[in-house]
Design a protein around this nucleic acid. Sequence first.
RNA 1: GUGAGUGUAGCUCAAGUGGUUAGAGCACUGGAUUGUGGUUCCAGGGGUUGAGGGUUCAAGUCCCUUCACUCACC
Length: 369
Amino acid sequence: MGSPFTLIKKDLNTKARLGRLVTPHGVVETPCFMPVGTQGTVKAVLPRDLHELGCQILLGNTYHLYLRPGHERIRQLGGLHRFMNWPGPILTDSGGYQVFSLGAMRKITEDGARFQSHIDGSSHLLTPEKAVAIQEALGSDIAMVLDECIPHDAARSYVRESTERTIRWAERCLNARNRPAQLMFGIVQGGMFEDLRRSCVDALSVMDFEGFAVGGLGVGEGEEKLNTVGAATVDLLPENKPRYLMGVGRPQDLIHAVRAGFDMFDCVIPTRNGRNGTLFTWQGKVSIKRAEYADDARPLDESCGCYSCSNFSRAYLRHLFMAGEILSAQLNSLHNLYFYHRLMDKCREAIRDGRPEPWAELVKFAQAS
RNA sequence: GUGAGUGUAGCUCAAGUGGUUAGAGCACUGGAUUGUGGUUCCAGGGGUUGAGGGUUCAAGUCCCUUCACUCACC
């Protein structure tokens, strides 16, 4: 059995790569964007619509599905794919980000991360072994190792200590595997320190992972550090395996990261910002709640082929938002995900094309954003 | 008609015995949101304190007149 990842083409003008990742539930063309479906659903979007807009792979979450409805229940019901009626590939995050985002509600030890449930306050210990067992029960195509996502301004001494623990956890995750068909990705930490990033890559890259992720970015460090640390880290990763930049980002961040050599992305921005009234277009961000759109009969983006732009006016989208209607979240999320997928289409086309012109357009868009 | 009560921001309400530039929540306006708690955070515009007169160094607050609304009773 060969490697699940095939590097199809390296761009001549940038470090971007065109690839193909084979998973048990289908093939993913990279660079790709993964919509976030934390709780077994991409909020406000039907699986049918995700498929229609070109979505290839979704992200689910270990921590959330473990707490509710429970991974054993999902296993009994035929696994996460069947449970949420998404037949395509699914990558599951390990719960490492919740180590970061739940802040005061968790405690880290060598053994694992102890969480206080945000639902009922009950206490749970998530160990590397348990994170793997949960992801195997969910039946995801790609499992992520348990890591600790640290704040961008963490002191060097803590970053070092934490990153070394994350490396030990990665090894424990590998040893806990029981389903060879499920791919597993290691996660590079190291904060904003390039030497710590490098030693983390050195330690992880000799382990038998099918891909590598870069974590701990897009957590408030700012655009410049995101780009420089991201680019420096991705350069160190093995060329023949997929490289995933976790949790990033804005359209301009994705363009920079693809050009730096990343293959996979996930981010809540298109769905969360959509629900909160921020929409992405090729002319830039549009805050649909603005009063200036109250009487605007034009579609959000004339050049967009999504269901929302094909059928509704800005005035209607604003009305739905101001009225707090459920359809607002649906139409906005659908549009933003459509936009993100067309953005990734353009990146793949630029690599196939091989000329600098398509990149020039994308960079121009990124700079204007 | 008589008696009582209430009038402060678009809405609901605060502002001890008179004392800085009348505040808050919601709403509205603008901005933020990066491995999601259907949010949250930041900033801003808004007032002739129903109207008129009086007392006082000083009135949303006390007095008089008037208007509106609410309730009770003829």
